[in-house]
Write a protein that binds this DNA or RNA. Structure first.
Lengths: 134, 134
DNA sequence: CTTGAGTCCGTAGCCACTACGGGGTGTAGC
DNA sequence: GCTACACCCCGTAGTGGCTACGGACTCAAG
């Protein structure tokens, strides 16, 4: 019988082994049963739960948001509305981050385009950075 | 004479007061002269330098990159090429961050759109999160 | 003279990990 | 049985870039 050890759980979910222990420590995933030698023994459900956590982290949800999502995902919660709200709020965050970054990108692009070598007395990029606070 | 104290420097540059001391501690900005009472005394040049740092941070440059930029901005460096390289690399980072976020946003948007209330047995957002690792 | 704001300093906390060190255990080959 | 080597245990400390806290001082206004 190939028991699911922490290493297996880690490689199957793509979560770093030390991170699994960290998640357990902060109570994001439940503490699993231990074998006689003290090794952690996981079940398939744990793999699913941790995959869920990983996906949510990849999507940029923070730990507390994930705690909420996990609670809402419990069977018998029927709280699609709340999940929806959380997702929409998070989407808003992402979109404002995107537009921030786009502003930055265009600012940088403009500066870089004006810079054709080392012939100009001052560097447009440095100028932009050093310009009086707008 | 209204000397530039740390509080003034902070409010003029929009950098948190404690952050100014932090920047000094890590050697990002030089330690200023002290008045007889021990208070820090800044010069106009320090205001410019810190504003530069703030702008660069806002643009997402990390502390080490800023150290480099500051060194390149020293007079007599004529190193526009290097600045350009750094800026282009950084722009690349920003652009890949943008496209990452855009993927996330569309994934979330799709899930949210499929979710019309609490009538469906399962929540599309949770489904997306819980789906087997793609 | 009191009050309140500003400054000093060192240290600890934040988030989400990641790394390290020193040990025990399990397994495979010889 | 012995040796290698991978795997696992645990606690603690470090990362980046701040931010907060606490106790002591100094300074300007009323």
């Amino acid at each position: 019988m190939a028991a699911i050890t922490i290493g297996k759980l880690a490689s199957e979910t793509g979560v770093h082994l030390e991170t699994v222990r960290y998640y357990e420590r902060i109570g994001l995933i439940p503490a699993p049963r231990r074998a006689r030698n003290g090794y952690r023994h996981y079940r398939l459900e744990d793999v699913r739960r941790l995959s869920f956590v990983r996906r949510a982290r990849d999507l940029g949800f923070d730990i507390e948001e994930i705690r909420t999502l996990l609670a809402l995902a419990e069977p018998g919660q029927s709280s699609c509305d709340e999940v929806r709200k959380l997702a929409i709020a998070h989407l808003g965050d992402i979109q404002s981050k995107i537009s921030d970054l786009q502003r930055l990108a265009s600012l940088l692009t403009t500066s870089i385009e004006q810079c054709h070598g080392s012939e100009v007395p001052t560097c447009p990029v440095l100028d932009m950075l050093g310009a009086p606070v707008a």
